[in-house]
Amino acid sequence: MGKLVLAKNITINYNDTQIIKPSSFSINSGDFVFLTGISGSGKTSLIKTLYAEHKIQSGEMYIGEFNLKKINKSKTSLLRKHLGVVFQDFKLISEWNIIKNVMLPLLITGIDKSNAKEMAMQYLNKVKLSHKADKFPFELSGGEQQRAAIARATIHNPVMILADEPISGLDEYSASLVMDLFIEANKLGITIVIASHSIPQNFDILFKQLHIEKGKIYELA
């Protein structure tokens, strides 16, 4: 497998404070990665750096051919079209119904509405939410909203899914359903990076762990 993410001696600052000290790591295409660390260790900042919301302070970081140190606005848009992002607070558009939310990445890439709707329905079916397609986010439970968010993150067949604490706050059943969806996406070849304070118990597929401790990122086998 080729390297999808390559970070060499990167440092990340947040409000003038260095939260990631010089660290290097890599992620291969198709990897299932857990990014672990205690609260405030810099997991979210690293995830944000991976979708080019934060810039690295020093070092070099590449996602495929995108150099995150020198990335501009148009290249950021292009990079994000190849990524799927899942958030702890779901970030579904509140004034849109669920099916339209799931259609979003396809509409951005220019796929016509009827095809996008058809595909969104298939993905909602996969995450067992087809019966709630016309509901609005506030009408769904947290677990359901997160499943909708995963459908949105996978519908455009991204290279990598970045998930920031996707199961914290969810009940055990919903958390297990959400993790199953990530595993399923990974089986399709999508690289998964999940920021989480811990690795779920009974997680039985091969994964890689990036652990942040005292600002340093460690690659654990």
Binding site: S77, R80, V85, K91, L92, I93, L104, I108
Partner: peptide, 16 residues
Amino acid sequence: YERMYIMELFGAPVWF
């Protein structure tokens, strides 16, 4: 702002 920010996270261009 929130809607436009979410769109931006998925690479939406300005016109979108």
